[in-house]
């Protein structure tokens, strides 16, 4: 474990804490894409299939359980909680997220890490995570005003994968000296998708003005 990966995991965890905080304290999920949250449930479940078959460390197992548990809890809040579900921006969250699943699955069949079910699903989850934020970014463009917690959530979510890229560079030079095409290219695509959000988020933060994304 290196500091970049720990920072990445903690940033990822913090993004989820911020989202849960927003939903629980404001009893609202306005501006949050349910479709992105549902994709994350699929990402975590397909990525952590080895949860009970391969023990890496307490930290690893604990974090996997937290990520699966919180992502399911968020979807539960947005779909079933009597108060929160009323605040879901249903008619703005229109990205056809199910269209993202077949290409990622086909890509995982064409370029898996290994031709085993768990590795094909692991590759699928890496590819899907790269594009899972798209419904959320589209929703942000449509939201007239983005509240601070939602903006922070998306910023932290983008920052975590950027920190993972630094971790991959660090590990390449200090440990493995091996190129890991699947996570690296997916991670770069994933982080690149946040590029314009990062630009407008940092600009709004510097100018102390409300975050607004151009439509």
């Amino acid at each position: 474990m290196n500091i970049f990966r720990l920072a990445g995991d903690m940033t990822h965890l913090l993004s989820i804490v911020v989202l849960l905080l927003k939903i629980r304290t404001t009893k609202s999920c306005a501006g949050i894409s349910l479709k992105t949250q549902e994709l994350y449930v699929i990402v975590f479940i397909t990525r952590y299939l080895d949860l009970f078959t391969r023990y890496v460390s307490f930290y690893n197992t604990a974090m996997k359980l937290v990520f699966i548990g919180t992502s399911v809890a968020i979807v539960w809040y947005m779909r079933l909680h009597k108060v929160v579900k009323q605040t879901y921006s249903r008619d703005e969250d229109t990205f056809k997220h199910y269209l993202l699943i077949p290409p990622c699955f086909i890509l995982a069949l064409l370029i898996p890490l290994e031709f085993t079910v768990t590795e094909i699903l692991w590759s699928f989850s890496i590819y899907l995570e790269a594009v899972a934020i798209l419904p959320q970014l589209l929703l942000l463009q449509r939201s007239s005003n983005i509240d601070n917690l939602t903006g922070s959530y998306v910023f932290l979510l983008g920052a975590y994968r950027a920190l993972y890229i630094v971790n991959w560079v660090y590990r390449f030079f200090t440990e493995t000296h091996k190129i890991r095409w699947i996570p690296w290219i997916s991670g770069l695509v994933q982080t690149a998708l946040y590029a314009d959000f990062f630009y407008y988020y940092i600009k709004s933060w510097k100018n102390h003005e409300k975050l607004r994304l151009p439509a």
Binding site: R5, R54, V56, S57, Y164, T176, R180, I182
Partner: peptide
Amino acid sequence: AETPEAKDEL
């Protein structure tokens, strides 16, 4: 193929 230790990441 990926070295197994790389699968210690989340």
